[in-house]
Design a protein around this nucleic acid. Structure first.
Length: 762
DNA sequence: GTTCTAGAAC
DNA sequence: GTTCTAGAAC
């Protein structure tokens, strides 16, 4: 590599790397750091919790601030602590927010026995973990480990499962010069499939809550958890460990798999997608027999043209085999070009299994299509249509019937497609390239003048199609620092509001719509004097985005906007919604507080909460109630033992009037605190039937929005017995068979299946 | 709305 | 020592 030439023309950025080491005590983390630091030409700082307090053990905050300082100074950083679970890693990952820092994980996933024997033998270890207790600690830690995933926010993960892997990783980092950067992706993981599958299901929030997490939450006491253990303070991770027998490696593995299955409690923390990524096969070089050398030139030319235009997106050329001629040609030709290795790289793997088998998240894949855009033929086209299911075929047909060579068509992939659920692919771009195969239509008979032109056009269309996807998911793509955009991301809004394939910037943009003017606070407390001013326009079903800034009822935090966004633009999330009509949208509550919990969302602009509802909305309230009933009845058909209640929160946390349709089992890990319980089981919850009565008689609904209601003692909603805390309450309600209080049995406040007890009480 | 975490309660 | 809550931050 000719550094001088490159630096002269376009100097590379000095990009610090934040390497989060992941490994049990004895896995060799400190040794790894020392060896790299001993031979690297890059400035490194090792942040070690065991020594950070003037040579003694410190805390996580000290590590974070020390790492922050070092990164600011442009130094690369090793985080030398166990980091075996996602939560422990997450704050360190955040340090890398922004494009200037690459966050890597190096996983020292060595056999438990090896770690233990090293831990037991050593003396003078910084973390004071040595001798006999080490075995128990290491074993316990390994049982709870969660291997890192790219979705946590890493740009590169290197898995080392034996000494030779470690050696390779050492070499990689030791030779990483100050101006170099490493390829993105997962490296070295031997059998990722099963775990990644769990990971992506969580990622897409399709997975059910694992039993382990649910039972823990239910408050049922687990006698095994009471074992009084020896407490060891090794723990950088501040855990305590009980003494457990020495497991051999195979047992450890089994437990580990269970542990991976039980990270459900973290499902809500699952981070977002990686950088928007287009994976594309080489166009025309397979069945269309285009000359590889010429094709490689064109790929390199077009990649060079486009890759640097992307601020935060990457292109990946994919082929099935390491022996791929086109991959080698492109790799060879790209070497002399000034192309950021993170914005373009090659990948060997099946384009339909990039995430599940390769750990490479690509939200967009290109298909080397035929002009009819049908699934026929072989190769990539057949593979993609096959993997994507009939959804892709119908989505394609809706969009475009045929495509001539040199063109591309972007097709959003329905969320029911296996490629979406399994691989996280949100769009397929069909591309038709030039054909040099006389057996296929439109053969150019070796006319490479035309052929090259068409192939260039094909890549241009492809990359522009990809750019348009990135642009559409990013409302303000230009002139805004990625750093700011990423920092402003809120996971919560993400999970409340949207499908997880949205880019980080997407969320920011959504909030910008509501908060871009930054005015909400100005209107705080002006309800009385200006409420009337806007009354007239409140029930317009259009463009509330600026006007409702002035919602007179209260100010809404940035996290409270998700439902409003959905009500205004349901089409953006249509695959995740249960029903859309002109007046309402029905969706599953993102954090259901019972086995069935859906929201019927009004679509009227400016109607933020019950306080906003007036007589003119009566028809809407009736409609919402009817739709809610319809869904309750649907659920009752599936499970007649459920009981439903329909109602509104007196003071909702989320903006945009929504009716809760919630089953009365309250069996949910998301029901976690007093406020959750009391918001559904005190007068704070206003039954839809009562609200409708009040609006029709008084023109307004009674609000019981006193905070005291939400902090009331916890009482069973059936027998009214009091309980000291949420776990005990949940344990009680899981068994309580008492009839519901008389009040609820009247006026149709409870909705039950016909034939169930009390179902006809009015 | 959720997450995080200090410190109260047990 | 562990569990649980409550308040702040987002």
């Amino acid at each position: 590599m000719d550094m001088d030439v490159e630096e002269a023309s376009a100097p590379k950025e000095r990009k610090p790397v934040l390497v989060i080491l992941v490994g049990a005590p004895g896995s060799g983390k400190s040794t790894f750091c020392e060896e790299v630091m001993g031979s690297s030409t890059r400035p490194w700082v090792r942040v070690c919790q065991d020594t950070i307090g003037n040579g003694k053990a410190g805390n996580k905050a000290q590590c974070l601030s020390s790492a922050t300082r070092a990164l600011k100074d442009g130094k690369s950083v090793f985080i030398d602590r166990c980091n075996l679970d996602r939560e422990q890693r997450s704050e360190f990952i955040k340090l890398g927010d922004g494009p200037q820092i690459d966050v890597h994980a190096v996983v020292l996933d060595l056999p438990a026995k090896l770690c233990i024997s090293r831990s037991v033998k050593r003396t003078g270890h910084e973390g004071n973990l040595q001798g006999g207790k080490a075995a128990a600690v290491v074993n316990r830690m390994l049982q709870h480990k969660e291997l890192p995933k790219l979705s946590e926010g890493f740009s590169r993960i290197t898995f080392c499962q034996n000494e030779s892997d470690v050696k390779n990783a050492l070499n990689t980092y030791s030779t990483l010069g100050p101006l170099d950067s490493l390829q993105y992706g997962c490296f070295g993981q031997k059998n990722p499939d099963s775990k990644i599958q769990v990971g992506i299901m969580k990622f897409l929030k399709r997975a059910e809550v694992p039993v382990a997490a649910a039972s823990r939450e239910s408050g049922i006491e687990d006698p095994t958890s009471q074992t009084p253990g020896k407490n060891n303070s090794c723990c950088k991770d501040k855990q305590t460990f009980s003494s457990i027998p020495d497991n051999d490696n195979s047992e450890t593995k089994e437990v580990e798999n269970q542990a991976v299955g039980s990270v459900g409690s973290h499902a809500n923390q699952v981070s977002l997608d990686d950088i928007p990524t287009l994976a594309f096969p080489s166009i025309s070089t397979s069945d269309f027999q285009f000359n590889h050398e010429k094709a490689a030139d064109i790929i390199v030319e077009k990649v060079a043209e486009f890759s640097n235009k992307f601020r935060n997106a990457r292109l990946v050329l994919v082929d099935l085999s390491h022996k791929s001629k086109i991959l080698s040609l492109v790799k060879a030709k790209i070497a002399g070009k000034n192309i950021d290795a993170q914005k373009f790289f090659t990948h060997v793997g099946d384009i339909t299994h990039l995430y599940s088998r390769g750990g490479l998240r690509c939200n967009v894949i290109a298909n080397a299509a035929n002009w009819r855009l049908n699934p026929g033929g072989g190769g990539v086209n057949a593979a993609i249509f096959n993997a994507a299911g009939p959804e892709l075929e119908s989505a394609t047909k809706e969009k475009v019937q045929s495509l001539s060579p040199g063109n591309a068509a972007v097709v959003p992939l329905p969320s029911s497609s296996p490629l979406f659920t399994r691989e996280g692919v949100t769009h397929v771009i069909h591309v038709v390239g030039p054909n040099m195969n006389p057996q296929r239509p439109n053969c150019l008979n070796n006319d490479y003048n035309k052929g090259c032109k068409i192939l260039q056009d094909a890549y241009t269309s492809l990359f522009e199609g990809f750019a348009s996807i990135v642009r559409n998911q990013t409302w303000h793509p230009v002139g805004k620092s990625e750093n700011l955009e990423r920092k402003s991301l809120e996971l919560q809004v993400q999970s409340d509001c949207s499908r997880n394939y949205f880019t980080k910037t997407d969320q920011k943009s959504k909030r910008d719509v509501d908060h871009g003017l930054g005015k909400s606070k100005k209107y705080k407390g002006t309800r009385d004097d200006s409420g009337l001013t806007f009354t007239d326009s409140r029930n317009e079903n259009v463009d509330s985005e600026h006007r409702t800034e002035r919602s007179m009822t209260k100010t809404w935090g940035s996290w409270a906007q998700a439902l409003h966004q959905i009500a205004m633009h349901p089409e953006k999330l249509k695959d995740d919604l249960l029903e859309i009509s002109d007046d309402v949208v029905v969706l599953n509550d993102m954090y259901p507080k019972a086995r069935k919990h859906v929201l019927v969302l009004a679509r009227t602009g400016g109607l933020d909460c019950l306080a906003d509802v007036q007589k003119e909305h009566l028809q809407l309230l009736n409609k919402m109630h009817d739709v809610g009933l319809k869904w309750a009845e649907k659920f009752l058909n599936e499970n007649a033992s459920l009981v439903f209640r329909l109602g509104y929160h007196s003071a909702p946390s989320m903006r945009q009037l929504h009716l809760h349709v919630i089953s009365q089992d309250f069996e949910s890990i998301h029901l976690k605190n007093k406020k959750h319980w009391n918001s559904f089981n005190t007068a704070f919850f206003r039954d839809s039937v009562d609200v409708i009565d009040e609006i029709s008689s008084d023109g307004k609904a009674k609000l019981k929005d006193d905070d005291k209601l939400l902090s009331m003692e916890l009482r069973c909603h059936r027998c009214r017995s009091a309980h000291p805390n949420i776990p005990r309450l949940k344990s009680h309600i899981s068994n309580c068979q008492s009839p519901f209080p008389a009040h609820l049995l009247q006026h149709g406040r409870l909705v039950r299946a016909p034939g169930e007890p009390h179902s006809n009480v009015q």
